[in-house]
Design a protein around this nucleic acid. Structure first.
Lengths: 231, 231
DNA sequence: GAAATAGTGTCTCTTAGACACTATTTC
DNA sequence: GAAATAGTGTCTAAGAGACACTATTTC
């Protein structure tokens, strides 16, 4: 039987075993990839999300950033908390409670932690149920936050073509986007500026490289939209 | 000095003291109100959010719902997790880690827990810094989720006038909304249906009562919008 | 020139918001 | 009738998407 709860400390204050788990994401072709590390042989699954046990002395965000850095071999370009996960789902470390973080990085040519590999988010190997839930919430969280945080830009290197950017948006939205409309919206938002560089990718006309350079704050006066799921 | 971390258990598994804190919200005039309970005299602040210590044996969502029910004297009409809060901020119970939940309820004529009172969200008394952060995130979370969850409807009784509904939207959005436009959007979304009842509120033409009855799933094909904060 | 990719001009349709109006109640 | 609140018809401007086009490269 798994030990999921812990006895009170001597002081009488109840405490729980807790972990901090991270979902590192990068674009891989037209899909997202997630970084997994080999799981200890004792476990049921062969792969797991990078995680650390929480000791209570740590800062949440700081610990997440450190764990991400160690797993990736470099600082992630964006990181955010996804939430707390408990319930009955099993965690590889037997933690009663897990705090999930999601982070993104543009490149995959890093010095990954030993044995770590990228796996397509749509075809992940078996994970402990708790970690599967964290991955699902993290991907959903990326989709929700791309409106209000520069997630798409952080999935790209500092300079990128507009087609690159559109493909990241399509990847996150899970649908195709109209090219001309996409570019008009982007121009109206004053989020990118052109560089002097062009990239030639085999055949076809070379594309101009842009960089993320938000200029002004949009009114944010989005209309009232009722996007609730119907009955 | 506060005891914020806990020693490892006998089994050697690190553990932390953790709390579950809830932000109960209800509309109060044109503003949101939050339920607070009297804090123990020992603490620095006179009020606090309802919270419980986590033991690790509990389910997160279930515990939150129970705590909300006990504080409110009735089940909340909607509840969701906001996130995990740690960092250096002090919690009334000295917990090293706190899981925040936000819940809403339409009415304020409940059998509240002893001493509990509603306080306007814009003018809260002093709270422990951790709990202040949880309140701020909870209110922001309500604003973000009203697009995708029926938060506004759960802040209203089962039947309501369209003016009631519009006022809740204005309260959550923090800005005025155009009446005709609001009603057109609402009609297009097939989210409410009229009842046979009308409510006369003193002077003026009586308003028809509606109920929340989502009918069909909208395409959800919202265009790409870049609402990132500008530099 | 063919193929491929980048980038743009114009049209239409939807919709948020402004404005002005009608409708029904209490005083 | 005046005041107050509920509810609606019409116009305009913005913007998303369709379509078709031009531009520049490799083969």
């Amino acid at each position: 039987m798994r030990d999921r709860s812990s006895p009170p400390t001597r002081a009488g204050r109840p405490s729980v075993s807790a972990s901090l788990d991270i979902v590192l994401c990068t674009p891989q072709g037209r899909a997202l990839a997630v970084l997994l590390t080999p799981a200890p042989a004792a476990g049921r699954e062969r792969w797991m999300l990078p995680w650390v046990a929480m000791t209570g002395a740590q800062q949440l965000d700081e610990s997440a950033e450190r764990l991400a850095g160690e797993s990736l071999g470099a600082r992630p370009s964006w990181i955010a908390q996804v939430g707390a996960f408990g319930d009955d789902k099993r965690h590889p470390g037997g933690a009663a409670l897990s705090i999930g973080y999601v982070a993104v990085t543009p490149g995959r040519d890093r010095h990954l932690a030993a044995g770590a590999q990228w796996h397509a988010a749509g075809a992940l190997p078996a994970l402990a149920p708790r970690q599967k839930a964290i991955v699902d919430s993290s991907v959903a969280s990326l989709r929700e936050r791309m409106d209000t945080a520069p997630v798409a830009f952080r999935l790209l290197p500092p300079t990128f073509t507009l087609t690159d950017l559109q493909e990241v948006y399509e990847l996150l939205l899970g649908r195709r986007v109209h090219k001309a409309s996409f570019r008009r919206s982007l121009q109206a938002a004053w989020l990118v500026e052109p560089t002097d560089e062009w990239r030639s990718e085999g055949r076809g006309r070379p594309a101009q490289l842009f960089r993320y350079a938000p200029r002004k704050r949009r009114g944010g006066r989005r209309g009232v939209r009722f996007e609730l799921p119907g009955g």
